[in-house]
Simulated scan of single mutants.
Amino acid sequence: MKTFQVRYVYKNSVCPTLSLWMVIPSGAVMTGAQPETVTALPTGEELGYFVLEEGAEMEVTFEQGEYTPGRQELSAGERLFYLRDTTLSSIEEVKEKTQELTGHLTDAKEKARMIFMHIVKEFRYVYPPSERGVASFLQTAKGDCGEFSFLFTAMCRAAGIPSRTIVGSWANGKMNAHVWNECYMEGEGWFPVDTSMANIQKRQPLRFFGSDVPTLYWERYFGRTEGRRIVFSKDSELPLMPAYEDEEDPVLFNVLPINGQSFCWGQQSFDGTAPYLQPVYIKCEESVPSRDLGVTELMGTWKVKGPTWLEGTVYLKRASFFIGLMGVLLSWITGEAIFDLLYTGSFMVYALISLARKERMMAFGVVFILMTLSFVAAWGKAGLV
């Protein structure tokens, strides 16, 4: 199994005193600021509470293997928790539609598949979304991975299927946030579902063509993932401890519309819960800034590195693509057959590395065959056969 190394850093450059909540990963090593308290969450995770003075920094490093959902049995309390109604995943908003889609079905997996197919086909991936929350998503039918996931959670819960929103990141590079789902199937445990990636692969199949992230055929995202993703927290709207004290009259910065209502990120909560931990949620305790904060000021920074050989293939792939582009340009300028060999050979290597990394196997398989045939033709044109 591949192992990914994650390094997360947060530095308080926002206000004199800042509170921060973060799920502490298993086996994490923490330097700098240490948690004031550590409490258990209903998800089975541990929530750390930090207090950072201005200029203070915390660093958390940990390892995770390729993503696989858990197989544990749910207790009665856990089942209720994963069937709860929340602000971002409002069950009331989707009851009628869920009943229309799944009311004639008895099998939980068939119900979940019906919900999956409906969301993938009826909604469109757009980043960034204009608003957050299921109510807004239903009105616009446009949203990013968060909205797709919040809706899947809400509809599964409305159908009586325990479900949770998984908040995390792609396991490559810096700050590649992603959100998806797990729903619970009796006898199987947690079952992975990614409606936003299915939607992209169905409607925008070229969107990830040059990415280092592997992809699957869209229907396979019901029950499978490519595995190269990191989990930060196993659900949205997790209770914050110690209690989050909302500002009664918040300064209007980082205002994010949620279900048609203004929400000040970093000053408010949903009845004591964080909208989501990716991987942190913060609160400015004093001298609140009167400007919008940047992404790193809100969430910190993280970087994910894979095994050395896997990281090395990224650089080889990018180098071969760049050399291929240069070969195309030089071939066009000079007309020399040697540059035809250069670009066809480079693109052949690019496709071969992509195949070795299991990225879009069918597409890169076709590219590899075409480039191989073109390379042989260029070899003959150059008089080398």
Rank of each mutant, 00 (worst) to 15 (best):
residue 35 P to K: 08
residue 36 E to F: 04
residue 56 A to W: 09
residue 57 E to F: 00
residue 64 Q to S: 04
residue 70 G to W: 04
residue 74 L to W: 01
residue 78 E to P: 10
residue 82 Y to D: 10
residue 83 L to E: 09
residue 89 S to P: 07
residue 95 K to Q: 13
residue 98 T to A: 05
residue 104 H to Q: 14
residue 104 H to L: 12
residue 104 H to E: 14
residue 139 Q to C: 13
residue 146 G to Q: 12
residue 157 R to T: 06
residue 159 A to K: 00
residue 163 S to I: 09
residue 164 R to E: 05
residue 165 T to M: 12
residue 172 N to W: 11
residue 181 N to P: 04
residue 191 F to P: 02
residue 194 D to I: 03
residue 196 S to R: 00
residue 197 M to N: 08
residue 202 K to W: 14
residue 208 F to W: 15
residue 212 D to F: 15
residue 214 P to N: 13
residue 217 Y to Q: 12
residue 227 G to L: 01
residue 231 V to A: 03
residue 236 S to W: 07
residue 236 S to V: 07
residue 237 E to H: 01
residue 237 E to I: 00
residue 241 M to H: 09
residue 245 E to D: 12
residue 251 V to T: 14
residue 254 N to K: 05
residue 254 N to H: 09
residue 269 S to G: 01
residue 284 C to M: 13
residue 286 E to C: 11
residue 292 D to F: 11
residue 292 D to Q: 10
residue 294 G to E: 13
residue 296 T to N: 09
residue 298 L to E: 05
residue 298 L to G: 06
residue 299 M to A: 11
residue 301 T to W: 03
residue 306 G to T: 04
residue 307 P to Q: 08
residue 311 E to G: 08
residue 312 G to P: 03
residue 313 T to G: 06
residue 314 V to T: 10
residue 322 F to D: 15
residue 331 S to V: 01
residue 333 I to V: 07
residue 340 D to N: 14
residue 345 G to R: 01
residue 362 M to F: 11
residue 371 M to G: 06
residue 382 A to I: 06
